[in-house]
Amino acid sequence: MSVKSNTVNTVLGAVPAEELGVVSVHEALLSVTPGAEHAFDITIDRAEIFETLAAKLTDFRTHGGGTIVDSTGMFHGRDVRLYEALSRTTGVHIVASTGQGPEEMLGGYFLTPQTNPPTPWPADKFADLFSKEVTEGMVVPRVERRGAAGLVATAVTATGMTATDESLLRGAARTALGTGVAVSFRHGADAVRELGVVLDEKLPADRVVVGGLDRTDAVAAGTPMEIARLGAHVALDHVGTRDADHVTDAERAVLVADLVRAGFGDRVLLSGSATGVAKGHPGNDLPYSHVLTTFVPLLTAQGLSDEDTRRILVGNPRDLLSAR
């Protein structure tokens, strides 16, 4: 079931990379805070969820979108059967992900695996867990394996990388080396150091996405340019977010233009981190089409050509998601 070269694993099977079209690389379809599905005040109506997500995906397709990457990983509401039905109905390719993180979002089983004293899971155990979701199919808990993950996604604790976070990063890198899919991680307190952990596993830098690089602190420190110089993909993945922790869309557009003019146009990725349906947390109720309808005109105003924009929206994610 593992993806073949020049194809990408979607929930409906491997498709030629050239068919992906415009890709939004870091979104969430159904996002459930672990445990919320058991809460008395949370309702999970799959028919209602389907209708909501189908409308949002159709809007994305209407505005020129081709592929959504659900980068929530394991155990956060991922519903492979639902995603299959959504893809068939809307015509939007859906790439689902394996992976977990950060540490605070892991269940106790993955934090203290019956050792005395408790120790973090070793990287090889995470690698085995994630790799099987690529080669054997994604777990539908207690039921079956179904489909194949097209990406390994994890995240680092915002206040600083923990030992478990490091195991997750190394496990993700080993999964990528063994299966051919890429790694995406949301950075914590030190993106360059965290990327260094992944690269220490001998994974080529162009197989890595560093997310969250449109955070205010990262931009102020010049981190996006530094990550690009190291050869990894720079994900500005909160397009449309308006808060003190992230730069504005106007500032993002300037940053994209700066990266392109510095020769790193082939390293830029864009998305909104939108949440289609959120359960147990507020979510980010942003249209998946926001990058296309609102942000692309800002790039044009910065002097980016249609070729530059197409490379960022189509070429870069196509190359990233293609197996190697």
Rank of each mutant, 00 (worst) to 15 (best):
A221H: 01
T248M: 09
G108E: 10
T98Y: 01
H246K: 08
L86C: 12
V296Q: 07
R186L: 11
L129M: 15
T164C: 00
E51F: 09
V291G: 00
V22F: 02
P120F: 04
G222E: 04
A189S: 14
R193M: 06
F110R: 07
G276Y: 06
A218L: 05
G265K: 02
T157G: 04
L168Q: 04
D165T: 00
A85P: 01
P224K: 09
G280M: 08
V183A: 04
L169I: 02
E144S: 13
V314M: 02
A220R: 15
V210Y: 00
L255Y: 10
F40G: 12
V152D: 00
G240T: 01
I68P: 03
E18Y: 07
D319C: 13
L270W: 00
A191H: 03
D319W: 12
R252I: 12
T58W: 01
T175M: 04
D206T: 08
L12C: 14
L30Y: 12
R78C: 15
E18Q: 09
A221R: 12
A28Y: 05
E19T: 13
E103T: 10
H238R: 14
E201A: 10
N6S: 12
M105R: 15
G35K: 10
V11G: 13
L106G: 07
R170E: 09
V268I: 15
L321H: 00
G137Q: 12
A173W: 04
L199Q: 13
A173M: 06
A301Y: 10
A39W: 14
L177W: 07
E136Y: 11
S184Q: 12
V152T: 00
E27D: 06
V314A: 00
A323W: 02
L259E: 06
A163W: 03
T90H: 02
D306M: 09
R252A: 10
L53A: 09
D285W: 02
L203G: 03
I42V: 15
M105G: 11
